[in-house]
Design a protein around this nucleic acid. Structure first.
Length: 342
DNA sequence: AATCCACTGGAATAGCGGGGAC
DNA sequence: GTCCCCGCTATTCCAGTGGATT
């Protein structure tokens, strides 16, 4: 039933895009100087999750490389690579200059090394750039004349609020490409296109695609997740097409799958914190610390717990209600554990 | 209004561990 | 092997903040 599973993965870059031609054109135009051996101004892609920002960035750069193969493209997800060192390292890795670089290379060695790659232009795509903790990395990259930047973030205001003035003023003049949520029709068309390439004909009906598009409410990542999970389930149950029952099961599954995966990635102490919050539904800091300390053998300090908590807020696992005194923590979304509902 | 207090988050510092140089 | 360098995490210290209490 599944002909090509890669097509349903969220990091898949299609050979043709559906419904994002204006955005592709705008980004292509801003990168045009690269075709004439000049550096492009920074380009910004703004919009909520699952609207195709990353996909369009990769797609457009892939097209650019067809015209100008000498351009090096580096993709960095600042969610994972959030230090200056890691961003620079990751870029060097993508353009193939990491051979003898290690953690103990002197402070500015990476920057220097990146400076030596100026035999050809480089485009650095920094995804989730608002998650970058050391924004000095942006300043570094901007100082390198052969590096053009494509910066992806959710909201412009929040991104710029987190930058220091030096960086902010340099990035002010750049192209902004804004992405709106997909409508149900658009998302249905995107899913249909992917289903065509990924699944055998007749596996999924138009009505089912519409149901998926509707359930995903404009988020292509969620929509693809549902389609992927439904196809996998149907295969396991030896159906030759996706049944409505299978689809109904796949919808809530896709919603919680991402969160479950994130929770699994937490270290023990973080997971204890998460469990306490999920079990109580809502808890004050003082009580949270106490409960945590009672449950573990070698408790970390409160300061460390606060770092864990900000990280978990960051991962969208928990929510912090209120700013200072009187703050409470609670799980995000439907993650409340059942046995505590009484 | 003044003081107390619980809590947050920034900055500085220590310690760990990976990896190169010798 | 030992030494050294450095990034990363946890810890210590602390200023700031705003609700609670007097």
């Amino acid at each position: 039933m599944i002909v090509d599973g890669r097509v349903l993965r969220e990091d898949f870059v299609p050979s043709e895009v559906v419904h994002r031609h204006d955005e592709v054109n705008l980004l292509s135009e801003s990168l045009e100087p690269l075709l004439y051996d000049r550096r492009a101004d920074p380009a910004f892609l703004f919009g909520p999750t699952g609207v195709g920002k990353t996909c369009i960035a990769r797609y457009t750069l892939a097209r650019l490389r067809e015209q100008e193969p000498s351009v090096g493209v580096a993709y960095v997800n600042c969610w994972q690579e959030y230090t200056r060192f890691r961003v620079l390292y990751s870029i060097l890795e993508d353009v193939g200059h990491t051979f003898d670089i290690h953690r103990s290379t002197p402070k500015d060695e990476l920057f220097g090394r990146l400076g030596e790659t100026d035999d050809r232009p480089i485009v650095a795509i920094l995804d989730e750039v608002d998650q970058l903790e050391e924004t000095a990395a942006l300043y570094d990259l901007y100082r390198l004349g052969h590096v053009s930047l494509v910066l992806i973030a959710n909201r412009e205001e929040e991104l710029f609020a987190g930058l220091d003035d030096r960086v902010r003023s340099r990035l002010r003049a750049g192209t902004r490409v804004r992405f709106d949520r997909y409508g149900t029709d658009e998302l249905e068309a995107i899913l249909a296109e992917r289903a065509d390439n990924a699944l055998e004909p007749g596996t999924v009906s138009d009505g089912q695609l519409r149901t998926i598009a509707d359930a995903a409410s404009g988020d292509a990542r969620v929509g693809l997740g549902i389609l992927r999970s439904a196809a996998r389930r149907a295969t396991q149950q030896n159906h030759d097409s996706i049944t409505d029952d299978v689809l109904a099961d796949a919808i809530p599954d896709a919603r919680t799958a991402i969160r479950r995966k994130t929770v699994e990635g937490l270290i023990e102490h973080q997971r204890v914190l998460y469990d306490v919050i999920a079990e109580t539904g809502e808890i004050e800091p003082g009580e949270l610390y106490e409960t945590y300390e009672r449950r573990v053998d070698n408790p970390k300090t409160k300061r460390t717990l606060r770092n864990y908590l900000t990280k978990m807020v960051h991962y969208d696992l928990i929510e912090a209600v209120g700013k200072r005194r009187g703050r409470t923590y609670r799980p995000v979304g439907d993650a409340v554990v059942e046995h505590d509902q009484a």
